[in-house]
């Protein structure tokens, strides 16, 4: 198979090459239509001054400004804050919820009664399958100021002081609200990885003299190493680009850019500007940089975690 694929010198070989491309075609088409073309478009837009204030239906009149938007961005006094906000948000949500807690929930629910574990996991999926608007509304209702917030209602009944929770600790809520959603992705992947470890292997470890905790450390964790790295990588990238929940919860506030993240800025600049001026060109510059960061991170992860080892040649003679 390998030989014929690299040296297509007969009809059959050509056919197998065509077959390979045929199988890749659907996925390839999706990548082209939904990733490469949009990236090309925003890249082009980021080099123009297109905005709602100077918009004409004559696209030819669109002014090409070169790297001006990027220069503006680098001199933007808030870009730096937003950049570090983004790192903070991704790092904390990822490390606390999307990986660590997801792993803990998976390990716990696979070590208890199957039915109970399943139910518990089903509950954790609720935030993900709830519409973000409804989900955020629930949080806001819970946490709202007195006399509206449910939590503050209890505080009032118990003669405790009331708080404006989200406004005083916006980062806590941004991370927790996103983490509750993000957790279920890792949970599902980890759980299925743990459950696909052969039962014999798990039993062997116990008979060999391990406790259940030692079994997690010496057998289960090493065996789910790839899913772990995959979730880590995938969730980094998806957190980088996610902003809907933040937009609905704090909209980047309170105050100036307190919880604003990069992808939200791209949105704000391009599509929802305060001052009524949608700066499509400038917003695109933010988006392009985000794509760049994502691609660079993906490549680094692939190198560091050696994802190519995942697709090792099958050892057919071993079957």
């Amino acid at each position: 198979m390998r030989n014929t694929a690299t040296a297509p010198n007969s009809r059959g070989a050509w056919r197998s090459v065509l077959g390979a491309y045929g199988f890749m075609a659907p996925a390839g088409a999706l990548v082209i239509v939904f990733f490469l073309i949009p990236v090309a478009i925003i890249l082009y837009l980021s080099l123009t001054n297109l905005a709602s204030s100077n918009f004409t239906s004559n696209l030819a009149a669109m002014e090409f400004v070169g790297l001006k938007n990027y220069r503006t961005l680098l001199n933007d006094q808030f870009a730096r804050k937003i950049f570090f906000n983004t790192i903070f948000y991704v790092l904390f949500t990822l490390s606390i919820f999307n990986v660590t807690l997801a792993l803990i929930v998976s390990l716990l629910t696979t070590h208890i009664d199957r039915g109970a574990g399943f139910l518990f996991r089903a509950l954790w999926i609720l935030p993900r399958i709830t519409s973000p608007v409804v989900y955020i509304l629930i949080w806001k209702r819970m946490m709202a100021e007195a006399p509206f917030g449910i939590l503050n209602q209890f505080n009032t009944w118990l003669n405790q002081p009331t708080y404006n929770y989200i406004a005083t600790n916006p980062w806590v809520f941004v991370v927790v609200v996103n983490g509750f959603i993000g957790l279920s992705f890792g949970m599902i992947i980890f759980t299925s990885a743990i459950e696909s470890i052969p039962k014999d292997l798990l039993n062997a470890s116990l008979v060999d003299g391990s406790s259940k905790l030692q079994r997690i450390r010496y057998v289960i964790l090493p065996l789910i190493r790839w899913p772990l790295l995959f979730v880590f990588t995938y969730q980094t990238l998806s957190l980088l680009t996610s902003f809907v929940e933040i937009q609905l919860l704090t909209d980047g506030g309170p105050g100036l850019y307190r919880t604003e993240v990069w992808s939200l800025t791209a949105y704000h600049r391009a599509l929802s500007n305060y001052f009524g001026n949608a700066q499509w060109g400038y917003g695109s510059a933010f988006a392009v940089l985000l794509v760049l960061i994502g691609v660079v991170l993906a490549v680094i992860y692939m190198r560091v975690f050696r994802f190519d080892e995942l697709v090792a040649e099958p050892r057919v003679e071993n079957l």
């Binding site: 052969p198 014999d200 292997l201 039993n203 062997a204 470890s205 008979v207 057998v219």
Partner: peptide, 10 residues
């Protein structure tokens, strides 16, 4: 000490 049908090697 136990030996499994699938060998169960890590």
């Amino acid at each position: 000490g136990m030996v499994f049908q699938s060998y169960a090697l890590y």
